[in-house]
């Protein structure tokens, strides 16, 4: 056991949950625990309120490493809020969130920045920069890590090939179709080889053919060992995938299969 890491267990604000101190080590500025890597996402009695509205209530969930999980439910069920909480973009009203054994309630801002480099997020509205090319949009996720230029170029090309957009890397997002923009967003999320890939309604605005392409793409990424959580209101689109599904209704898990 790393003695330095063990000592750091007792320092307040280290981002390490006391209950998980045994065997924890500090890697690249983040506390991790090899014993618990099997569970990459753990949610304990999670509540989230927005003023008087309860968005999530008493969510208990474990996601194992390499799992492909669907979160479904009608609009307003709390799917996006759940993903945003896992991503650290929102703070829970109560309850605990552990991502790769890191307690998000106790994580510092700088550690959260580092954690986000290991969690990819595909946003419903893509969040692409219109004044940057496809290549620049994808490379942005690596620019922030301070990697070497040659490494960034190599990884960006790889990522764009994987989503079949290699020939469009100099194009601007607004000149692309909805499906292509979605694939750029996916390329940006996977370019940093994330441990977890979160996708919020990735096929929401796409026709059935493009939806199939995106589903195939997610399967390919999953095959590489990435843990994937997809929030979608239309589970039927993924019906043949045979993956774990969590159904949310009014902020509560009602079915888990």
């Amino acid at each position: 056991m790393n003695l330095l890491a063990a000592k750091k267990t007792y320092s307040p604000g280290s981002g390490l949950p006391n209950a998980l101190s045994k065997g924890s080590t500090l890697r690249n500025g983040l506390w991790t625990n090899d014993n618990l890597w099997a569970k990459v996402i753990q949610l304990f009695h999670l509540f989230k309120n927005f003023g008087p509205n309860v968005a999530l209530r008493d969510i208990d969930l474990r996601v194992l490493k390499g799992e492909f999980v669907f979160v479904t439910g009608p609009s307003g069920a709390g799917k996006t809020t759940l993903l945003r909480l896992i991503f650290g973009a929102e703070r829970p009203t109560s309850g605990q969130i552990l991502i790769n054994a890191i307690n998000l309630n106790r994580i510092s801002r700088s550690s959260l920045d580092l954690l986000r480099r290991k969690v990819g997020f595909v946003f419903q509205d893509f969040k692409l920069l219109p004044k940057k090319t496809v290549f620049e949009n994808v490379a942005l996720a690596l620019e922030v890590t301070g990697e070497r230029g040659s490494f960034i170029r190599k990884k960006t090309h790889q990522s764009l090939r994987l989503v079949n957009l290699a020939e469009k890397e100099q194009a601007y997002p607004l000149s692309l179709s909805g499906g292509e923009q979605q694939r750029v967003a996916i390329a940006r999320a996977i370019v940093k080889d994330p441990l977890i890939l979160l996708a919020d309604e990735p096929t929401g605005n796409l026709d059935p053919d493009l939806t199939r392409d995106i589903i195939t793409l997610f399967r390919n990424i999953h095959m590489k060992g990435t843990t994937i959580v997809v929030a979608t209101h239309s589970r039927e689109r993924f019906e043949d995938s045979g993956q774990r599904t969590i159904v949310l209704k009014r902020g509560k898990i009602v079915v888990e299969k």
């Binding site: 700088s110 920045d113 580092l114 986000r116 996720a141």
Partner: peptide, 12 residues
């Protein structure tokens, strides 16, 4: 752009 930078893990 700042929002996106923060979401992909840029430090402050």
């Amino acid at each position: 752009e700042i929002e996106i930078l923060k979401l992909v893990g840029a430090t402050d």
